[in-house]
Design a binder for these strands. Structure first.
Lengths: 113, 113
DNA sequence: CCAATACATTAAAATATCTTAATTTGTTTG
DNA sequence: CAAACAAATTAAGATATTTTAATGTATTGG
């Protein structure tokens, strides 16, 4: 959890929200879920199967993504189907991939933090 | 640090790299630095002043951003000037802001993780 | 050259996230 | 309705990140 600090400029507050937005995509499991859901609507079991992680982990990360507004869900019989709630996320991903492609050497990230 | 796991599909490996890309923008201090540098080249002292964080923190996060390829630096006299190394980062930020704007209610992020 | 300024590095403490394991809730099928 | 299946929740342990504080290195002005 993020701590709440007292004296923050508007810009800083805005930046914190954007940072949280990016945080949503900064975890491999979550990003993998988002990628899969960009292809098609899927239920939890399908995601568990496709990603090869525990049901618990997938459900937890789905809850996170849902809370953050990346995905929405609807119950269909005994399944819960998830899908991406904002198509523009696809564009963000495409752009990120383009940037990473041109910086392949570099982006592997910090040895220090 | 991220742990290295042994059995990972190509897709999973790619996803990890993209996750790292987003991780770069997922910290308020780092994102603030990136935003400032999108405006203009700045030295460390200027960033410290503008952001209102310790010199140590700014330097540490700059090292992170540099390692990840977000920024480059050049020495000029006793100052070290930093700038954004890939202009497309600006587009990523703009897109993120547009998405967040339309999901203002939602994106405040996980109470749970 | 030395003092001052600018920045980098390091390690460790404080915090946050990630993952798992166990359990619970909800839904359907026999 | 009971068993089976699907998913959510919770708390706690394992890890990772963030930040600070102290110290080191580089550059320049006097």
């Amino acid at each position: 959890m993020q701590s709440v600090s007292v004296t923050h400029s508007d810009a800083a507050v805005q930046t914190e929200i954007y940072a949280k937005f990016f945080h949503g995509l900064s975890n491999p499991t979550r990003l993998r879920i988002v990628e899969m859901l960009l292809d098609r609507e899927m239920n939890v079991s399908q995601l568990v199967e496709a990603i090869g992680a525990s049901q618990s982990l997938i459900s937890n990360q789905l809850a996170c993504l849902k809370w953050c507004g990346y995905v929405t869900s609807r119950q269909e019989g005994k399944y819960v189907l998830y899908r991406i709630s904002d198509e523009r996320v696809r564009t963000v991903l495409q752009l990120a991939k383009a940037i990473v492609a041109d910086n392949a050497e570099h982006i592997r990230c910090c040895t220090r933090m």
